[in-house]
Amino acid sequence: MPKGLHELAKAFPEHLAMIRHLNETDGHFHRISGAFREVSAALVKADGKAGAEREALAHRQSALKAEILELLTRPETVEDILP
């Protein structure tokens, strides 16, 4: 698995093949998965801290996760990779 995709694999283990496929073929997916990894790393660094910055990171991670899930489950994508 390419470096950095572990966070996505943990978040969406049932979509591992699609994550790999989209990361290699879809520029938009690649960008937002990179943003998800960056936000996840920032949240780990902010662990145990309270405040607006941590809350903003958590909100951003949630929004990215929702967008990623939408891309992983869109019908045209699933048809491209799965028989």
Results as ranks from 00 to 15, higher is better:
1 M>H: 12
1 M>N: 06
1 M>I: 07
3 K>I: 03
3 K>V: 04
4 G>S: 00
4 G>Y: 00
5 L>P: 03
6 H>K: 11
6 H>P: 02
6 H>N: 11
7 E>V: 09
8 L>D: 14
8 L>F: 01
11 A>N: 09
11 A>W: 07
12 F>A: 08
12 F>C: 08
12 F>G: 03
13 P>W: 12
14 E>P: 05
15 H>W: 02
17 A>Q: 13
19 I>G: 14
19 I>L: 13
19 I>V: 15
20 R>L: 15
22 L>R: 14
22 L>Y: 02
24 E>A: 15
24 E>T: 06
25 T>K: 15
25 T>I: 11
25 T>V: 11
28 H>C: 09
29 F>R: 06
31 R>H: 08
31 R>G: 05
32 I>N: 14
32 I>F: 03
33 S>V: 09
33 S>A: 15
33 S>L: 09
36 F>M: 05
36 F>L: 06
37 R>F: 00
37 R>I: 04
39 V>H: 11
39 V>K: 09
40 S>Q: 06
42 A>Y: 01
42 A>K: 12
43 L>F: 02
44 V>R: 10
48 G>I: 11
48 G>K: 12
49 K>M: 12
49 K>C: 13
50 A>Q: 12
51 G>T: 10
51 G>M: 05
52 A>M: 14
55 E>A: 09
56 A>P: 00
56 A>S: 06
56 A>F: 10
57 L>R: 03
58 A>K: 11
60 R>V: 10
60 R>G: 06
61 Q>L: 12
61 Q>S: 11
62 S>T: 11
62 S>R: 15
63 A>T: 14
64 L>V: 01
64 L>R: 06
65 K>P: 01
65 K>D: 00
65 K>Y: 01
67 E>D: 07
68 I>A: 03
68 I>G: 06
68 I>W: 04
68 I>T: 01
69 L>T: 08
69 L>A: 02
70 E>K: 14
71 L>H: 04
72 L>R: 03
73 T>A: 00
74 R>W: 03
74 R>F: 03
74 R>I: 14
75 P>A: 05
75 P>R: 09
78 V>N: 08
78 V>R: 13
78 V>F: 03
79 E>A: 05
79 E>S: 05
82 L>V: 13
82 L>N: 01
83 P>W: 03
83 P>E: 12
